Amino acid sequence: DVEPGKFYKGVVTRIEKYGAFINLNEQVRGLLRPRDMISLRLENLNVGDEIIVQAIDVRPEKREIDFKYIP
């Protein structure tokens, strides 16, 4: 289970104008929005990159997770 405030290693699987989709595993995916990136820009991410993200909002009923990147 993903818990708000905890850090997780994930893989960038898709990049859109509104953010990057990060997979923690095959069943768990969330969104990293540009506003939640500190010292990292969306255009510097590539599909396949491994990054450490912090879960900031977890909505299991909608199967949605918002992430934050903190270097």
Rank of each mutant, 00 (worst) to 15 (best):
Phe7Ile: 08
Gly19Lys: 03
Glu3His: 13
Asp36Ile: 02
Ile22Leu: 05
Phe21Pro: 00
Val53His: 00
Asp1Arg: 15
Glu16Gly: 09
Lys9Ser: 10
Lys17Cys: 09
Ile65Met: 05
Phe21Asp: 02
Arg14Tyr: 06
Leu24Phe: 03
Pro71Gly: 12
Asp66Trp: 09
Lys62Pro: 06
Pro60Tyr: 11
Pro60Glu: 09
Ile38Ser: 13
Asn25Ile: 03
Val11Gly: 02
Gly19Ile: 03
Phe67Gln: 02
Val28Trp: 15
Gly19Asp: 00
Glu16Val: 14
Pro34Asn: 07
Gly30Lys: 01
Phe7Gly: 04
Pro34Gln: 13
Asn46Ile: 11
Asp66Ser: 11
Lys68Tyr: 08
Glu43Phe: 10
Tyr69Ala: 04
Asp49Trp: 06
Gly10Trp: 13
Val28Leu: 15
Ile22Val: 12
Val28Met: 10
Tyr18Trp: 14
Ala55Trp: 02
Met37His: 03
Glu64Cys: 07
Ile56Phe: 11
Lys62Ile: 10
Gly10Gln: 02
Tyr8Val: 03
Leu32Ser: 00
Ala20Leu: 04
Phe67Trp: 10
Ile52Met: 11
Gln54Gly: 05
Val12Thr: 01
Arg29Pro: 03
Ser39Phe: 10
Arg33Leu: 04
Met37Lys: 02
Asn23Ile: 08
Gly5Gln: 06
Ile51Leu: 13
Gly19Tyr: 05
Asn46Tyr: 13
Val53Gly: 00
Gly5Phe: 10
Pro71Trp: 06
Gly5Met: 09
Phe21Met: 09
Phe7Met: 09
Asp49Val: 06
Arg59Phe: 05
Asp36Lys: 04
Asn25Cys: 07
Ile38Met: 12
Asp57Ile: 11
Ile15Arg: 04
Thr13Tyr: 08
Val28Thr: 13
Val12Gln: 00
Asn23Arg: 10
Gly19Ala: 07
Leu32Glu: 01
Val28Arg: 06
Arg33Lys: 08
Leu24Pro: 01
Glu3Phe: 13
Tyr8Glu: 00
Gly48Ala: 04
Arg29Val: 13
Glu61Gln: 12
Phe21Lys: 03
Asp49Lys: 05
Phe67Val: 04
Ile70Ser: 12
Val11Glu: 05
Tyr18Glu: 06
Lys62Phe: 11
Ile52Gln: 07
Ile52Leu: 11
Glu61Arg: 05
Ala55Ile: 14
Ile52Cys: 10
Val2His: 04
Pro34Glu: 13
Met37Asp: 03
Glu50Lys: 14
Asp1Gly: 14
Glu64Gly: 07
Leu42Cys: 03
Arg29Asp: 07
Leu24Met: 05
Arg14Lys: 12
Lys9Asn: 09
Phe21Tyr: 15
Arg59Met: 04
Arg14Ser: 12
Val47Tyr: 06
Val47Ala: 05
Ile65Arg: 02
Pro71Gln: 08
Glu50Ala: 14
Ala55Pro: 05
Leu40Phe: 07
Asp49Ile: 06
Gly48Val: 00
Glu61Asp: 15
Arg29Glu: 10
Asp36Gln: 07
Ile38Asp: 10
Met37Phe: 03
Leu31Glu: 02
Leu45Tyr: 02
Ile38Thr: 13
Asp1Thr: 14
Val58Ala: 06
Pro71Val: 07
Ile65Phe: 07
Asp49Gly: 05
Tyr18His: 06
Arg63Val: 08
Lys6His: 12
Lys9Gln: 10
Lys6Asn: 09
Ser39Cys: 12
Arg33Phe: 03
Val58Gln: 04
Thr13Trp: 09
Arg63Ser: 13
Ile65Ala: 06
Ile65Leu: 09
Glu3Lys: 15
Glu3Thr: 14
Tyr18Leu: 05
Asn44Met: 14
Ala55Leu: 06
Thr13Phe: 08
Arg59Ala: 04
Gly5His: 07
Glu43Gly: 11
Val47His: 04
Ile56Met: 14
Pro4Ile: 15
Asn25Thr: 12
Lys9Phe: 11
Glu61Gly: 13
Asn23Cys: 08
Asp66Met: 09
Phe21Trp: 15
Asp49Leu: 08
Ile38Gln: 14
Asp57Pro: 03
Glu61Cys: 06
Gly19Leu: 03
Arg63Glu: 13
Glu43Ser: 12
Ser39Pro: 15
Phe7Ala: 06
Ala55Arg: 04
Leu32Cys: 02
Ile56Gln: 07
Lys62Asp: 10
Asp57Ala: 15
Met37Ser: 05
Tyr69His: 07
Ile52Ser: 06
Tyr18Ala: 06
Ile70Glu: 12
Arg33Val: 03
Glu3Trp: 11
Asn23Trp: 10
